[in-house]
Design a protein around this nucleic acid. Structure first.
Lengths: 102, 102
DNA sequence: CGGCATCCGCGAGGATACTG
DNA sequence: CAGTATCCTCGCGGATGCCG
């Protein structure tokens, strides 16, 4: 077995999906609170900046872990939820959660 | 559910264990190659510096994911392996690996 | 309200040399 | 051989302000 296998392996891809200081907290929160608005999410997660929150949400959307729902009122309303893929990742993370709590 | 739950939850602890640019590669490698010497490990993982390798190995030893075996010859020989805890984490990571490869 | 655009600080990680 | 000791780089994330 060679090291190069790690590059491009599924584990690396999965870790890239959840990488970033705030990405796991965001996923963790969405796992327990579906369909939440941007500013509510921003208030619920203390000390994160809007910039970083927007960045990470875009990233999570790109890798298809969350989905975005937009209501064209004024002001606009944007809701975020875990996708099906995101939920199945959440199940794996909850196994990790159990592992870490002992 | 409140955000503060994330701080101190098992998931955060588990992610801290595997945090760091090189920690997952090291675990991944040890998962497939038991009982390997420091310099061999260093050669097998391209471009990592000895400093960082030593740092991460110490960290992994502190959180009890790997174990160290030292032979007092000259020059000294040091072998690293996954601990039992490390192997069970490895099993979880292989689930993540499957997740990431689709 | 839900973001971008800028600027900036800090600390993980890299390069290199040295040691028991 | 198996690490330390120093110094340095670079990019993630923080702070603030603006816009449709």
């Amino acid at each position: 077995m060679k090291y190069e296998d790690f590059e491009g392996c599924g584990l690396k891809k999965a870790l890239d999906m959840i990488s970033g200081k705030w990405t796991p907290p965001i996923l963790y929160f969405l796992f327990n609170n579906q369909d939440i608005r941007f500013n509510d999410l921003w208030r619920e997660i203390p000390r994160i900046s809007k910039k970083v929150l927007a960045e990470r949400l875009k990233h999570l959307e790109n890798v298809d872990l969350i989905s975005k729902r937009k209501v064209d009122s004024f002001p606009v309303e944007v809701y975020y939820s875990l996708s099906e893929k995101g939920k199945s990742l959440g199940d794996i993370l909850s196994v990790l959660d159990k592992f870490g709590s002992k």
